[in-house]
Design a protein around this nucleic acid. Structure first.
Lengths: 214, 214
DNA sequence: CTGATTACTGTACCGCTGGTACGGTTTGCC
DNA sequence: GGCAAACCGTACCAGCGGTACAGTAATCAG
């Protein structure tokens, strides 16, 4: 009955696979419905696991939330790192590297089959009261990582390209996060990835204008 | 016991006052905790009303949501209209009018005593599964109004100011919404209004750069 | 092959709360 | 003083998060 998808043969990875199945299912459901609106029973049903099994892996819903945020930030980090590596391989110039990264990112969003499911960080931020301080700290940490990622590149760019207007690096870096989160919201409302893609490209144009590349 | 705050004497405005009290309380709570996580009982307690009284005014939680969105969009509209009127009084030039509007808006956000409570539109978008199609339509409608408001002004600007780069009006208009929503999210996470203000001003700078005002 | 450990299943249960319903009571108004 | 509108009080129930635990299947060490 429990249609196991037969991943992870051999070693003791069975546990990890189940855990991952729970996390993936929970993330999808929470992005659709929100954290509070997603019951544990909902997750159990879709993940084809029993309550006992669930509580074997997680002590409760809050610990699930914690694990979800950690997983999400790690995933996100992997994606960004990969895209930056690609971009860095295509140019030596710090400005062009960042511009290429943004183009690659926009392309990736455009190529998504379905509408962007949303960002767990945003979803949790709007229900932060239901989560522990620890989870909130994790989220803030994640945002700061994104800020740092872009900031480092902006600093390098500043050295080479005098900005057309005085540029505040943290604000310009935060603008990336702001653009993505705002774009995702628009995409959810318009039910299409296009707005998200457009906003990312607009942010890209902003950087080009600020650093006199146009 | 029921500490009525003794507003609205005389005429049959008692009902409207109660209704408004419920709505205001509900909005504050929902922005803090999220829609699903806000129980009717929570609202009853803070609004000093009983369950019976509540259901006299609203058929249920979903209808409350509907009323909240309507109220929110109306409020929002009033604020934007007022700021635009102020801006239009200060300049004849379409570009400068929009720039002044953005400055006024940024100032308003900066002057808020507490951290921006969040946007109901965003909050509901992330829990849209719990709402009727009607509410979702309302939200989309609201977003489209904002787009239109800015688009009309951008069109006028385009006539006078040739853009430095080909400008897509809807995308540039959506960028306002995206900036505000993204900024609000940042402000919630950083627990300060500054990021929101900074993002609005950065959007303002983007427009200045695009339309060659710098 | 065996036995121990891990990784679950299945079931039964509990306290609590969110949402609904509705009969009764107060208040305002002609 | 009578009639609506506005509001109170209470009762009800499904469903939630969480617990407990006995039984069973998979995995691995020796």
């Amino acid at each position: 009955m429990t249609t196991r998808t037969e991943e992870s043969r051999s070693t003791g990875t069975r546990s990890a696979a189940t855990r991952e199945r729970i996390l993936a299912t929970a993330e999808a459901l929470i992005l659709q419905r929100g954290f509070t609106a997603t019951s544990i029973d909902d997750i159990l049903e879709q993940a084809a696991i029993t309550k006992g099994g669930f509580f074997y892996h997680f002590n409760g819903k809050k610990e699930l939330a914690r694990a979800l945020v950690e997983r999400y930030l790690e995933q996100d980090n992997r994606i960004f790192t990969a895209l930056f590596q690609q971009a860095d391989a295509l140019s030596e110039d710090p400005l062009h590297q960042l511009l290429i990264f943004l183009k690659l990112f926009a392309d990736m969003m455009a190529d998504m089959a379905v509408t962007h499911p949303g960002c767990l960080v945003a979803s949790f931020t709007y229900e932060s009261q239901q989560l522990d301080d620890e989870v909130r700290a994790l989220i803030r940490q994640g945002i700061l990582v994104w800020r740092k990622l872009i900031s480092l590149r902006l600093e390098k760019i500043l050295v080479k390209y005098p900005p057309r207007q005085p540029a505040d690096v943290p604000t310009l870096a935060d603008m990336f996060t702001s653009t993505v989160e705002g774009g995702i919201l628009l995409s959810r409302i318009y039910n299409s990835n296009q707005p998200l893609v457009n906003q990312i490209l607009q942010y890209r144009m902003h950087l080009r204008l600020v650093f006199g590349d146009l």
